[in-house]
Each structure stands twice: as structure tokens, then as C-alpha cells.
Design a binder for these strands. Structure first.
Lengths: 150, 150
DNA sequence: GTGTGCACAAGTGGGAAAAAGTGGTTTCTA
DNA sequence: TAGAAACCACTTTTTCCCACTTGTGCACAC
């Protein structure tokens, strides 16, 4: 079972290639032989989602099955399905990010790769730092969260 | 069961390594063989949290299970999971703090390690001292706290 | 009772080997 | 023909290990 954790600062080269950090690469190798799916994020944060292929294949039917008379559901489908790119790590452990996705998340040279358990998120460093600085609004916190004791 | 107490002033060297105080090191050794998880703190105080691995493994599923269509929950996940680094004390009882975490808590040379029962907190000395000086606002105290008699 | 010194443990720093990341060139394919 | 994939070589970073310095506690002597 996948269990990505931690954040890594990585660079994208002029060709749009980015080297997956060795630790993550290892995990991807034994989890899915380096076969991954990269797609856009659905919520307001403009970042990319990186799934190991098996994890994606579990998620995809659920997205397809959403009742798409609903506007929010249509949005989710268009973003996640419509942007999904299947790819494989090259011999040096790098991936080539498609231009459309690069544009979507406004990726330039400096990026952040964030492990979130079953998936990873890919942010432009600038946006990530800006997001970190945003103040959290404690309002609508789910009850499970209020009960947490860290 | 872990029971860290007390504060220790410690130094980080130029490579980002920091020596865990011998007393804490002992406790960590018999508790988890020196296997720990270091991550960012979720609230506004920019410090790091240090969990013995078993303690973390108890907490992690609860965080992963939060409903992440909720914004506050996503924030917590990105901070805690997205910054978590699993590591082991080296042969000299030191840990290497990853650059991203170093930056997050603005750690420089002088640090404070604070024992808080099941976990430890790691602060830059400067921030720790500044925090001590801050006045607390006694407003919204949870009822369990109001009932305390110190 | 106080001070000095010795010994061991803790903490610090640096260097060498290995691994990871980077960039360019060539080949292939659409 | 342009863009992507594979290949290869170089540079940088990381990790591991060893040696040195500092601090602390205990014992013994004065």
C-alpha cells in the first residue's frame, strides 16, 4: 500500500523533465513499476496530482460514475479525467510533464513535490509557499478534526 | 509509553544535523529503536513535531481519513503528512533535518527541544523565546481546561 | 568540606566514498 | 521536421564514518 510522505524541492529542466527524488522513485518502482498517472487538481489550489497507476485505477471509476447533472461533479470530471496523463519514469527516474499540465499548475523551474499518503501533489514552489502563508480559517472544521489530539 | 518532559537547548551544525540530548536519546532507543517521525506543526506556531514512530503510526491514519473535500482538513493533511519525514538516529545519536522542514520552522543554529509527553517539539530558540513573551488570550478555553486545578 | 584532576561520556566537525541529480547529444517517431 | 525518448557523461549532494573537543561527574587528596 502506498504511503508517500514528506515534501521535496525539485527542479524542472528546460525540456520540462523533472527528476523524482530517489526515495519516492523507489516506492514507485516497487508499487507500480514506475507507471503513474499525472492529472490536475479539482479544488481551488492549482497543483497537479500524481497517482501510482493502481491507485488511480481504483479512483477513476468512482469519478466517472458521479451524477453529472450536477455542476460541481461535471467540473471534477473535466479536471481529473480530462487532464489525466499516463506515463512512466525514464531510465534516469524522470518524468516529462505535458505542456497543458505545466500550464495548469503554472510550473516553472522550482517545484515542490508533496507526499500525502496514497498520492503526491506537485506545486510550483511559489504557489506552495504562498499557500502555506495563507491563514487558516478554523470555522468549518469537521468534527473528526476537532477531536484530534496531536 | 512515551513520556518526554523538559526542555533542552541544542545546536544544529552547518549540515543540518542535530544531536539529540542523551536522556531523550535513551528514551527513544528503548521506545522505538531510534526510529522517529519529524513533521511540521499544524497551528500558527512554526515549530516541528517529533514523534516516536509507534506514536506517529497511531496518529497517521486518523489524519489520512479526514474528509478532504473540506478545506481545513486539507490544510492539516498537507502540513502534517506533507511534511512528515521518517528517520533514524545516526551512530552518534543525531538526526538530519530535511531542508524543507528546516525552512518551515526557520531553524538556524540555536534550537530548543521541548518534551510534551507523547511527542517533542523543536523550535528555533529565537521563536521559542518570542513565543514565551507573547501574552495568552484567555478567551475560548475548552471546558476541560477550565476545570483544571494546577 | 572543598578543590583538583582524571576518565568517560556526550557533542562537534570534517572528509571520503557513494549515490543522486543535471544537462547535453543522438536517435527515433509521429 | 519538430518534439520526445533513450543514452551517456559530468557535477553536486548526501551519507557514513572516524577523530577530536568539550563537558560532566566522581574520586581522591589536601
Amino acid at each position: 500500500m502506498s504511503n508517500f510522505l514528506g515534501s521535496h524541492a525539485i527542479n524542472m529542466d528546460a525540456k520540462g523533465r523533472l527528476a523524482i527524488p530517489a526515495k519516492v522513485r523507489e516506492e514507485l518502482a516497487q508499487l507500480c513499476g514506475g507507471r503513474i498517472v499525472l492529472t490536475a487538481n479539482a479544488d481551488e489550489e492549482r497543483c497537479l496530482l500524481l497517482y501510482p497507476e493502481p491507485e488511480w485505477e481504483e479512483l477513476r471509476p468512482k469519478i466517472e460514475a458521479l451524477p453529472n447533472m450536477n455542476k460541481a461533479a461535471r467540473r471534477l470530471q473535466r479536471l481529473l479525467l480530462g487532464n489525466a496523463a499516463q506515463m512512466e519514469l525514464d531510465s534516469a527516474g524522470r518524468i516529462l510533464v505535458p505542456p497543458t499540465l505545466r500550464a495548469h499548475a503554472q510550473l516553472e523551474k522550482k517545484l515542490m513535490l508533496i507526499g500525502l499518503g496514497k498520492k503526491l501533489e506537485l506545486w510550483s514552489e511559489e504557489r506552495w509557499l504562498a499557500w502555506l502563508d495563507e491563514s487558516s480559517d478554523d470555522e468549518d472544521m469537521p468534527p473528526e478534526m476537532e477531536a484530534l489530539s496531536l
